[in-house]
């Protein structure tokens, strides 16, 4: 066996080791575990309240093709509440990973004037079928209002630049102004602290 082949074989073993390490360090297990802690037993958060600059009034919802699980049919009807607007689609694994944390927020703060609106913007055709969305919402434990954005016009109009992302969460204060924005999974404690601060601010 030539020297270069041996070096390649050793390198391959090292790469497999790095891949194994990457999976061993996957923090999602810890995240998932934290969501299973009953809300009442959850330790008090020590996360500092993030900056919540006023980023101006929220954009309008455009071409929404109906609402699911909702008594309201517009964001205007939610003014006076702190609202989390989350862009998601049920086929997106990272969106799914955020849902237990969203549910936790909902259970914790819904009776204090907090609401979640999930804007479902499908990536693929099968994600645009209302029956599939309803089925997925039931399976995934999504109990908050869902606004349907099949053309993704709202999805793109809210997000700056040519590329828009799932999942993305915006927190609106009681005046309907954007005060917090996060792309992707994570920062759950920070989001929780932001909701608390916005509720306290107005209360």
């Amino acid at each position: 066996m030539g020297r270069s082949r041996i070096v390649a074989a050793v390198g391959l073993v090292a790469v497999v080791g790095v891949i194994g390490l990457a999976f061993a360090l996957d923090p999602s297990d810890a995240d998932t575990a934290s969501t299973t802690v009953p809300v009442a037993e959850a330790p008090a958060t020590t996360i500092a309240t993030p900056d919540l600059p006023d980023r101006g009034p929220r954009p309008d919802l455009i071409d929404i093709d109906g609402w699911l699980q909702s008594d309201v049919s517009s964001l205007e009807e939610l003014e006076g509440k702190v609202v989390a607007v989350q862009f998601w689609t049920f086929g997106c694994r990272n969106c799914k990973a955020t849902l237990p944390h969203m549910q936790e927020l909902y259970e914790k703060y819904a009776d204090q004037g907090f609401e979640i609106v999930g804007i479902h913007a499908p990536e693929f055709e099968y994600e645009a079928e209302v029956a599939n969305i309803e089925e997925a919402a039931a399976e995934l434990g999504v109990t908050w209002p869902i606004a349907l954005d099949p053309t993704k016009r709202t999805f793109h109009s809210w997000q700056e630049g040519p590329t828009a992302h799932w999942p993305r969460i915006y927190l609106l204060d009681r005046d309907g102004h954007i005060r917090y924005d996060h792309i992707g999974e994570g920062r759950y404690a920070e989001t929780d602290a932001a909701v608390q601060a916005l509720l306290a601010e107005a209360g």
Partner: peptide
């Protein structure tokens, strides 16, 4: 590419704003 946006990539994209 339409990436899966996990915590790290999400933090990068949020910071890039």
């Amino acid at each position: 590419w339409r990436p899966c946006i996990g915590a790290e990539l999400g933090a990068i994209l949020t910071g890039a704003r």
